[in-house]
């Protein structure tokens, strides 16, 4: 019961947030709307007993990623009077068409009970323990190697990005070039 009540409250909030992202005139408001959606999703995760995922959702998405978005918006100083004219012809009818297709397929799956290969697995899976302890246990035993390799990926990204973005001052290069 609690689950259902929470679902309706935060589901509605997530939708409001999503609509704000699209509809808001001010990009900062759009970012705030996105943050609301991300927070609501975090609540869903808590309800599903996936505490670790919920924490990550708040820290990484609602925290770090959103701060980055706001930084970019404010640094670049997106003009409030953005040019919103649409360059792709038939954009709106196409959007309506695609949207309707998604809705129809969704209803078909939910009501018709077809596509058992999509819905059939739900509930059949093993009991999942979503606590941070359980995840840490898995991460540092079974998935130790991919975990360590991922840390290497992060070094690659930072070292590579630095090397690509960093230019030494021209004057010093010229001086060095003369040396054998």
């Amino acid at each position: 019961m609690t689950e259902l009540v929470l679902f309706f409250i935060f589901g509605a909030l997530a939708l409001v947030g999503g609509l704000t992202v699209v509809a808001a005139r001010n990009p900062v408001h759009s970012a705030m709307g996105l943050m609301l959606t991300l927070f609501s999703l975090a609540v869903f995760y808590v309800v599903q007993a996936a505490h670790f995922v919920a924490a990550v959702q708040v820290i990484v998405y609602a925290g770090a990623v959103m701060t980055l978005f706001l930084f970019v918006i404010m640094l670049i100083g997106v003009d409030k009077a953005e040019n919103l004219s649409e360059t792709i012809r038939l954009q709106r009818p196409l959007v309506v068409l695609v949207g309707l297709t998604v809705v129809v397929v969704g209803v078909f799956v939910a009501v018709g009970g077809r596509f058992a290969w999509i819905t059939g697995v739900v509930g059949a899976g093993p009991e999942v323990n979503g606590t941070a302890e359980a995840i840490g246990d898995d991460l540092f035993t079974t998935w130790l190697l991919p975990f360590e390799a991922t840390s290497l990926l992060l070094i690659i990204a930072s070292a590579g990005a630095l090397a690509l973005a960093f230019f030494r001052p021209r004057r010093r290069e010229g001086k060095e070039e003369g040396a054998p």
Binding site: W143, P146, A149, L152, L153, I156, A157, G160, A161, A163
Partner: peptide, 28 residues
């Protein structure tokens, strides 16, 4: 290193991380 891990990986997660380890340095 990524290609070495790849040759030994026998599950989807290790395989995917190994493939990324091979490709990402190459993008740069």
């Amino acid at each position: 290193l990524g290609s070495m891990v790849l040759a030994s990986s026998r599950d989807l997660i290790t395989l995917f991380i190994a493939v990324e380890l091979v490709s990402q340095p190459m993008y740069l």
